[in-house]
Design a protein around this nucleic acid. Structure first.
Lengths: 224, 224
DNA sequence: TTCGGCCGTCAAGAACGCGTCAAAGGTGTC
DNA sequence: GACACCTTTGACGCGTTCTTGACGGCCGAA
């Protein structure tokens, strides 16, 4: 989840921002003055900072410089002052954007999206570990003892359904529907066929599976 | 020198921007409409684009998407429209900043500085090495054993999508969408054709590719 | 014990997808 | 207008994958 630090001394604005940002899936921390802001930034390490310039204890550029000393997170400045000199000062101090109050909340969210989009995609994909095997669903990559394992498209689909329901029993019907389509209900021989192939490729001892389990009469289960 | 592409159909504004930006040490190219803009962008590969939305031939978001297809350069939008919906649309299309006319030239320059500051030092030499081949995405230059290799525009787009997802499998659908547009879903013969050309130009042994790999039935993958 | 259901395994032909070659449109340049 | 280059389109051989059918083992029920 993307972490946003909101710095504003006016409680109603801070509250409005917290509500709107949370509603859009951001994890929000708030601070009411510059000192709090710097402390909070060090604690939570935000991915983006929304900073009101009219703080009681410090000048806006001081806060920006304090953050820029160690963080590269985008800083989006809010301010009641529309004078160009103010904007220029803030931007040159290290801010990434400058919005004057009153502002449209939709526009602010769009600017937040634009700012996070730039720095965002530096994350790696989650990897599922199955004993000696690692599965990277996003990259579509399977490794067994470091060696690359090739799966066919159908094998991938089947494995993906199981891995996305870890520990849960998935009925044969659901597996058939999600891999082969809604018209397949009774072709359990397909499942037998492909589960065997998956076990052959992923399990240490395919005859005695530990992670890709059969529940006779019901379906199959992936145990992490 | 930082290269800026200015796109504006009003000559006086384009001229004013050119003069001001040049005076501050930027290398400026101008374009008067969307088609010119996209062609100029492909030719000079700018580090930043200043884009007026009121172009005669194309919609603003089209231009933005056309650029975003292959370039990560910051896009600073100029517009006479102050409506929030316009701003949100432009920002979500891929723009980095939105300034309403009339604007203060000092503020614009500050926003240009802020935008270039981000991408400037952060973007470490984006040269990708593929065995005996080096690819410089920013400079649009490919060298094989020191010799320069020429790629067509389509080849560039395809290669860029793959290189920006190192190790990750990119589905044929996504490749078609990002290179040919959202209306192409099943034209996998295009992919076969152009992947073969890329391998012929980049791989040491095009018949046995090591870096541009096929995942049958799924897509293609670039392995560093 | 015998029977029937269910699962794992093996082995075939059928169908599909990929790489390749060749050639026809389209666009800009000289 | 001729030319070169790039894109689009069609067709073919080949390897892989999918589909389908059949067989034997295990287990619970009769």
């Amino acid at each position: 989840m993307i972490k946003v630090l909101v710095v504003d001394d006016e409680p109603q604005i801070a509250r409005a921002l917290r509500i709107n940002l949370s509603a859009h899936g951001y994890e929000v921390t708030t601070a009411a003055d510059g000192a709090q802001a710097l402390r909070a930034a060090a604690a939570v390490v935000p991915d983006l900072v929304v900073l009101d310039l009219g703080l009681p204890d410090m000048d806006g550029s001081e806060v920006i410089e304090g953050l820029r000393g160690w963080s590269k997170a985008p800083i989006l400045v809010l301010s009641g002052r529309a004078a160009s000199a103010e904007k220029i000062a803030a931007l040159d101090a290290g801010a990434d954007d400058y919005v004057t109050k009153p502002f449209d909340i939709g526009e602010l969210l769009a600017r937040v999206r634009a700012a996070t989009r730039r720095s965002g995609p530096g994350s790696e994909s989650p990897v599922t570990a199955i004993g000696p095997v690692t599965v990277d669903l996003a990259a579509r990559e399977v490794r067994k003892d470091g060696e690359e394992v090739r799966l066919t498209p159908t094998e991938w689909q089947l494995l993906e359904v199981l891995l996305r329901n870890p520990g849960k029993l998935v009925s044969q019907r659901e597996l058939l529907h999600r891999v082969w389509g809604p018209n397949y209900d009774r072709e359990t021989n397909y499942l037998r066929q492909y589960m065997a192939q998956l076990r052959r490729k992923l399990e240490a001892d395919p005859a005695r599976p530990v992670h890709l389990l059969t529940e006779p009469g019901m379906g199959y289960r992936f145990r992490p």
